[in-house]
Simulated scan of single mutants.
Amino acid sequence: MLQREAGSGRSRIITVANQKGGVGKTTTAINLATALAAIGERVLVIDLDPQGNASTGLGIDRSDRILSSYDVLTGAKPLQDVARETAVPNLFIVPSTMDLLGVEMEISNTRDRVVRLRNALAAPGAATFGYVLIDCPPSLNLLTINAMTAAHSVLVPLQCEFFALEGLSQLLETVGHVRSTLNPSLEIQGVVLTMYDSRNNLARQVVDDVRAYLGEKVYRTLIPRNVRVSEAPSYGKPAILYDLNCSGSQAYLQLASEVIQRERHTRAA
């Protein structure tokens, strides 16, 4: 069974969340997952966004998504029956479909509505992954609450723009609420600054402001604006597969190293 308490088992569940769209959330989820798989970790991505961009970015065509995270949340299928291989060795995905748009209405009146995903991950046969990364929709809805309730930690992508900190306090409040009511082991794994342009004075100021506000919670790695990273999803590939040597891919490899270091520190604590 997947271990629920931080540091108590090998499997680690990380929710990638930000209610603001266009911050590189899905790009971060799939490239971090690819980097972890590349160093030998067995990784599962759970796509909880009805838009299904993580599924597309990992090469799963929409016409080929017979089973999805919708089936997991409604209890129609166990997670291990829905998880499928990707082109990346050691990397698996539970794909998403537009059916997720209706799942909140379907399960909203059930007693276990906020623990559906946690229960699915705790079921016999689901605990075969070193890391589980959950890609959330750009909103703080029941899908995101399910993800946070199931997770050990939350990773927050934050775009290097003027309104970077706008809405972050709401996200942190939601994490605090989930921690106090549903999942006492939930932590902020870290905040990753995305779409960074070193030529832009504003971007540098944002980095300084976010680090002054959040301190050590902000990763050292900055994810740069990079054309190759933007192109990769249209080819159904993570940037790390599309162009390993581009600056964006190299940054995600560095981010994976930081994530692993933090996880080791958490487990040792």
Score class of each variant (00 low, 15 high):
residue 165 L to I: 12
residue 156 V to P: 01
residue 164 A to D: 03
residue 195 M to P: 04
residue 13 I to F: 04
residue 227 V to T: 10
residue 241 L to S: 13
residue 10 R to I: 10
residue 204 R to T: 00
residue 159 Q to C: 10
residue 49 D to M: 05
residue 64 D to S: 14
residue 182 L to I: 07
residue 242 Y to I: 03
residue 37 A to P: 00
residue 253 L to F: 14
residue 222 L to R: 00
residue 107 I to Y: 03
residue 32 L to A: 11
residue 68 S to L: 11
residue 147 A to C: 02
residue 163 F to I: 15
residue 52 G to D: 09
residue 108 S to V: 14
residue 81 D to S: 11
residue 2 L to E: 04
residue 200 N to S: 11
residue 203 A to Y: 01
residue 251 A to H: 04
residue 195 M to A: 09
residue 16 V to T: 11
residue 233 P to W: 13
residue 188 I to V: 15
residue 111 R to H: 13
residue 159 Q to T: 10
residue 215 G to V: 08
residue 258 E to L: 10
residue 105 M to Y: 08
residue 255 L to A: 05
residue 108 S to W: 00
residue 21 G to Q: 09
residue 90 N to Q: 13
residue 102 G to M: 10
residue 216 E to N: 05
residue 221 T to I: 15
residue 227 V to G: 01
residue 143 L to H: 05
residue 23 V to T: 11
residue 138 P to M: 09
residue 17 A to H: 10
residue 24 G to N: 14
residue 7 G to S: 09
residue 186 L to I: 13
residue 17 A to M: 13
residue 125 G to L: 15
residue 32 L to H: 04
residue 243 D to I: 09
residue 170 Q to H: 12
residue 189 Q to S: 10
residue 223 I to P: 05
residue 232 A to S: 15
residue 9 G to E: 03
residue 206 V to C: 04
residue 223 I to K: 07
residue 87 A to K: 13
residue 42 R to E: 11
residue 48 L to G: 00
residue 145 I to K: 09
residue 201 N to C: 10
residue 136 C to T: 14
residue 136 C to S: 12
residue 225 R to W: 15
residue 1 M to S: 11
residue 199 R to N: 11
residue 19 Q to R: 15
residue 19 Q to E: 03
residue 119 N to F: 00
residue 198 S to W: 02
residue 114 V to R: 14
residue 265 H to E: 12
residue 164 A to G: 06
residue 209 D to Q: 13
residue 51 Q to C: 08
residue 117 L to M: 04
residue 62 R to Q: 12
residue 126 A to W: 08
residue 4 R to M: 12
residue 265 H to A: 15
residue 144 T to K: 02
residue 248 G to H: 07
residue 200 N to P: 00
residue 13 I to G: 00
residue 122 A to V: 07
residue 176 G to C: 05
residue 74 T to F: 04
residue 177 H to G: 08
residue 249 S to A: 15
residue 230 S to Y: 00
residue 149 T to G: 04
residue 42 R to N: 15
residue 71 D to K: 01
residue 265 H to N: 07
residue 88 V to D: 03
residue 102 G to E: 07
residue 126 A to Q: 08
residue 4 R to C: 04
residue 230 S to C: 06
residue 196 Y to P: 02
residue 226 N to V: 14
residue 27 T to V: 10
